[in-house]
Design a protein around this nucleic acid. Structure first.
Lengths: 122, 122
DNA sequence: GTTCATGACAACCAAACAGTTATATAACCA
DNA sequence: TGGTTATATAACTGTTTGGTTGTCATGAAC
């Protein structure tokens, strides 16, 4: 009956995307699965550091780990990206609705202005 | 010639979106401009805390401050949201392209399977 | 069975974050 | 002028983050 401290999944999702290393890892995994070592190679950073980043991405649901002998290949899961895009789109749409309303208001003001101009012209 | 430590604007953008308080503030501002006090009201949090959140949103380009006497009304700027949505869409598209390629591969394997089945049937 | 390779895990550290209270600034109002 | 309101700024604090090194577990290969 009482959601503890909430902890919206969007928190973890956007936080995961807020780091350039993690975005690069994600871009790499969008191309296809890869091992930790492969993912770590491009970065001037230790393997445990990359593993930590992977854990963040996993907590956000963007990455899953498989098992293949001693490797643990990671693959990307795109579903949460849709969640994020939806959330962003919601803000944008509310904003646009109200922006449009402002536009209409400005149109109306302009129309009134025209009217009063005509009045003076007569 | 030497980009300092990079600091991608997407960092600030996604980081700004990664906090539920800030998302709520943004949702409120999507409806129209509001003062700091108005924005702070719904939260069990001091006014300086909200001002800090606003500063984060401003650094991300999502919010701007106006001047009206002693108030400093905030309004939302939707443009960076499009940036974020684009970035997300890029990941999704790369992923989809490769996912589709995997689908084709599976189709081909299934076809081969059918072939060999036919072979045995003869 | 050693030995090598992959990767996880723990302990540690510095810097950044998210909140607090207290204080300053600046505009309005009487 | 002095008081009140709106907001910013500063100083402090506990927690989180992003990295390090060192060690351990597991599976592969000789």
């Amino acid at each position: 009956m009482n959601a503890p401290p909430s902890s919206d999944p969007l928190d973890a999702l956007f936080a995961a995307l807020a780091d350039p290393t993690r975005r690069a890892i994600l871009a790499r995994l969008a191309e296809g699965e890869a091992t930790v070592a492969e993912l770590a190679a491009p970065f001037a950073m230790s393997q445990p550091a990359v593993s930590k980043h992977l854990k963040v991405l996993e907590r956000a649901g963007l990455v899953t780990a498989g098992v293949d002998g001693q490797r643990r290949p990671r693959r990307m899961n795109a579903a949460p990206l849709a969640e994020a895009a939806d959330a962003i789109e919601r803000y944008r749409q509310i904003w646009e609705r109200n922006y449009r309303r402002l536009d209409v208001l400005l149109e109306e003001m302009k129309a009134v202005e025209q009217q009063s101009r005509k009045g003076r012209e007569i």
